[in-house]
């Protein structure tokens, strides 16, 4: 088997006495959606931040695309092809939808230090941006101001910006949050096809989405991965049931 595109190896991260990541290992293989689930406070966001580069682990390594990226900055990881969407939409709100996508295309090309050519007439960048918007179904809103988009549309735009980077892997932090049934279904259909282009590490609370989409699921509880496996295995795993799924059923 080939090396996984992303592998997290024995990551530990503590905040004082709190072990937010306790010897966490997981990997992401080509063509898969790997879902990361766990109750609130389980350390999902901490783990995602360590993978994306916002936090540095106390110990352990992170390899991406054949290279050790444990000590690299967020920017360096993005340049290696780690496409990220944020839990809380992180967009330039005063820009148009198209401009946000252009920003991604520009980042991908990496030549932001050009001062005299009009960027919004750069056909290479425009093609990438329009293409990404079309893929998520936002092409009709290209001229709209980002702040005027609905919550769901902002999530779609997050994904579109990640797409402009043509990443080697996606890191998606709760892309369905607040989308509503219809929006969720649309995005699910889209992610389902996206995994063929680049694998997705998906943090998600929507259990229907997770179980219908994910090839594999890792369950994080109190900073530890208590189980990793395909959906049906996870469903019947006694540890998971008592720690997590059971709580959901009671609630």
């Amino acid at each position: 088997m080939t090396e996984p595109i992303l592998s997290v190896h024995n990551i530990c991260k503590s905040f004082g006495a709190l072990k937010a990541s306790n010897d966490v290992s997981l990997d992401l293989r080509e063509g898969e959606i790997h879902a990361l689930i766990g109750p609130n406070g389980a350390g999902k966001s901490t783990l995602i931040q360590q993978i994306a580069g916002g936090l540095r682990p106390d110990s352990g390594t992170i390899r991406f695309n054949g290279a050790d990226i444990t000590r690299e900055s967020t920017v360096a990881r993005a340049r290696r092809g780690l496409g990220r969407t944020f839990q809380i939409s992180s967009l330039a709100m005063d820009m148009s939808v198209l401009q946000n996508a252009m920003l991604g295309a520009l980042g991908r090309r990496g030549d932001a230090l050009r001062f005299f050519t009009p960027v919004m007439k750069d056909s290479a960048l425009l093609d990438v941006a329009h293409d990404a918007l079309a893929q998520v179904g936002l092409e009709d809103f290209a001229a709209a101001r980002t702040a005027e988009l609905s919550h769901g549309q902002r999530r779609q735009l997050e994904v579109a910006v990640a797409l402009t980077l043509s990443p080697r892997a996606f890191l998606m932090d709760e892309p369905m949050a607040g989308l509503g049934t219809e929006g969720s279904h649309r995005l699910m259909g889209f992610l389902d096809t996206l995994r063929q282009r680049a694998p997705i590490l998906l943090v998600e609370h929507d259990m229907d989405a997770v179980f219908s989409l994910a090839d594999r699921i890792s369950v994080l509880v109190y900073g530890e991965v208590i189980a990793t496996g395909a959906g049906p295995e996870i469903r019947v795993d006694p540890l998971v049931r008592s720690a997590y799924l059971g709580e959901e059923a009671e609630a």
């Binding site: 993005a78 944020f86 992180s90 967009l91 709100m93 005063d94 991604g104 980042g107 990496g110």
Partner: peptide, 16 residues
């Protein structure tokens, strides 16, 4: 302009 509005976004697309 992106960096002013949202530095996190600009970093995520690989710009400093």
């Amino acid at each position: 302009s992106g960096a002013r509005q949202n530095p996190q976004r600009v970093q995520a697309v690989g710009l400093v």
